[in-house]
Computed example of a mutant assay.
Amino acid sequence: MTGVLPCQTIESLIARGAATATTPIAPDQVQPASLDLRLGRRAWRVRASFLAGAEHSVARRLEDLAMHEIDLGPGAVLEKGCVYLAEIEERLDLPGEISGVANAKSSTGRLDLLTRAVTDGGTEFDRIAAGYRGPLYAEICPRSFSVLVRPGQRLNQIRFRRGQAVLTDAELAALHDSARLVAGGPAVIDGGLGFSVDLRRGAGERVGWRAKPHTGLIDLDRLDHYDPAEFWEPLAARDGRLILDPGAFYILVSREAVHIPPDFAAEMAPYLAMVGEFRVHYAGFFDPGFGHAGAGGTGARGVLEVRCHEAPFVLEHGQTVGRLVYERMAERPERLYGAGIASNYQGQGLKLSKHFRAA
C-alpha cells in the first residue's frame, strides 16, 4: 500500500536485508514510523558542507574536502562552528519502490546540532532515492554547543515511503473534523496544518530559552544531567513579543497542542522565507500516536527550534511560524509513539532536550 511504512514493515525490510549493519540493528532502533541511525566509528573534519552529486560517491568527494580523519571509538569532541562527516553504521539496499527521507531526532535538534543525511549520488540532503543501494553518512555541524560523540549514538532517523500519500487540505480538514488535530487555537489549514508560537503566559513566566554563547561541552551519553542555567538563558513573557537576535538559537513552544492519529504521520514543513528571517525547526518528524489519548497523550505542544538569520526580527504571540504536513501510513503501526516505548516527549510542553535536568 502507498504511504509511510510502519514499524512492522520496517522490521520486515531489515529481515530481508534492505537495511544492514556490521553490528546487528537493535529492536529499539525501530520506531513507530522510522528507523534510528547509529554513528559509525569514522568521521572526518571537512572544509565545507557538501553533497556527493549525481554519479559521484561521498568517498571520492572526501578525497578533496576532508581535512583529517577522526576515530570516534574512544569518544571525540565535535567543535562548535565546525563541519564534520561521519559514517552511519547502517547501509541500505532498498527495493525499487521504496524511498526514504531522513531527519534529525528531536533531542539532536534541541541542541542546535545540525545533522543531515548524505548518500552516494545524492543531490539533496536527507533524501534517499527509491531503490538506493549504498552507504549512509551524517553531516554534523554543532551550532551552539560543542559535543562529545561516540559510535552507536543516534542523531538522526530515516522514514521509508512507498509512493506519496500527503493529505490534501480538504482531506486534512475532514480528518480534523473527525479526530481533532489541534487544540488551543484554530485549525489553520493551508498547505498543511499551521501552528503558531506561544509568547503570552503569566507575568514573569518562562516562554522559552536562548542558548548562551560560551558554554561547556555536552556529552551526548549523559541524560538528565546538565543544569540548564549553565547553557541556557530563560526568556520571560513580556507583552507577547520577542525580538530574535541574528545568529541566536531559541527553544520556544507552539500555542497549539497537536495530535497525530495512529493511521497518520506528519512532518514539519520547511519554513517559508516570507514568514520572517528565521528558521523554525531542525527536527521535523511527528510519529503516529504523538499527542494521541490512546497512547498516553492528550495533545502535545510542538517544540520550536528557532534560529534567527540576517536581521533582528520581532516575533509576536500567535504568529504562524510553520505547518505540519500529514500523510497516510501504509498501515497502522503495531506500536505508537508513547505507548510503552519510552518516548521522551509525549504530552510535552516547553521542554529542553533529554540531556538537561528539569527546570
Results as ranks from 00 to 15, higher is better:
247 G>K: 03
277 E>W: 10
233 E>V: 08
277 E>T: 12
247 G>N: 05
246 P>D: 03
248 A>H: 10
266 A>Y: 00
243 I>D: 03
225 H>F: 14
231 F>G: 00
268 M>W: 04
253 V>F: 00
268 M>G: 02
248 A>G: 08
225 H>Y: 14
263 D>H: 14
226 Y>T: 04
263 D>E: 15
245 D>H: 04
270 P>H: 08
236 A>N: 02
261 P>V: 06
240 G>C: 07
250 Y>E: 01
266 A>T: 02
244 L>Y: 03
271 Y>A: 12
254 S>H: 00
251 I>P: 02
262 P>H: 10
272 L>N: 11
266 A>D: 08
281 H>R: 08
269 A>H: 06
239 D>F: 07
225 H>L: 08
249 F>W: 13
279 R>K: 05
235 L>P: 07
257 A>F: 02
233 E>K: 01
269 A>S: 13
281 H>K: 08
280 V>Q: 13
276 G>C: 10
236 A>H: 07
279 R>I: 02
271 Y>P: 08
249 F>Y: 15
244 L>C: 09
247 G>P: 00
267 E>C: 13
255 R>F: 01
264 F>Q: 13
259 H>T: 15
274 M>A: 15
268 M>V: 15
229 A>P: 08
227 D>T: 04
228 P>W: 01
248 A>P: 00
256 E>Q: 13
264 F>T: 12
274 M>I: 13
251 I>F: 03
274 M>P: 11
265 A>S: 15
231 F>N: 00
255 R>E: 07
273 A>V: 11
260 I>M: 12
227 D>R: 04
254 S>P: 08
260 I>V: 15
271 Y>G: 14
276 G>L: 04
280 V>A: 14
227 D>I: 03
225 H>M: 06
232 W>K: 11
268 M>Y: 01
262 P>G: 12
269 A>R: 12
256 E>Y: 11
253 V>N: 09
256 E>R: 10
233 E>A: 06
250 Y>T: 05
276 G>I: 05
279 R>H: 00
239 D>Y: 06
280 V>I: 12
255 R>A: 13
241 R>G: 05
281 H>W: 03
255 R>N: 12
224 D>R: 14
280 V>P: 05
238 R>N: 06
269 A>P: 10
227 D>V: 01
252 L>W: 02
266 A>R: 04
227 D>G: 03
233 E>F: 05
240 G>S: 09
223 L>D: 00
232 W>Q: 04
255 R>H: 11
273 A>I: 09
225 H>N: 06
236 A>S: 13
230 E>P: 01
279 R>L: 06
262 P>V: 12
268 M>L: 15
262 P>C: 12
260 I>Y: 04
264 F>P: 05
261 P>A: 05
275 V>Q: 11
255 R>P: 07
242 L>N: 06
243 I>P: 01
237 A>K: 06
226 Y>S: 09
280 V>W: 03
233 E>M: 00
249 F>L: 03
245 D>N: 01
280 V>C: 09
247 G>F: 03
272 L>S: 10
264 F>Y: 15
265 A>I: 07
249 F>T: 10
265 A>Y: 11
272 L>D: 12
257 A>R: 15
230 E>G: 14
274 M>T: 14
266 A>L: 05
274 M>D: 15
238 R>W: 01
251 I>L: 15
235 L>A: 05
230 E>L: 14
264 F>R: 11
240 G>D: 03
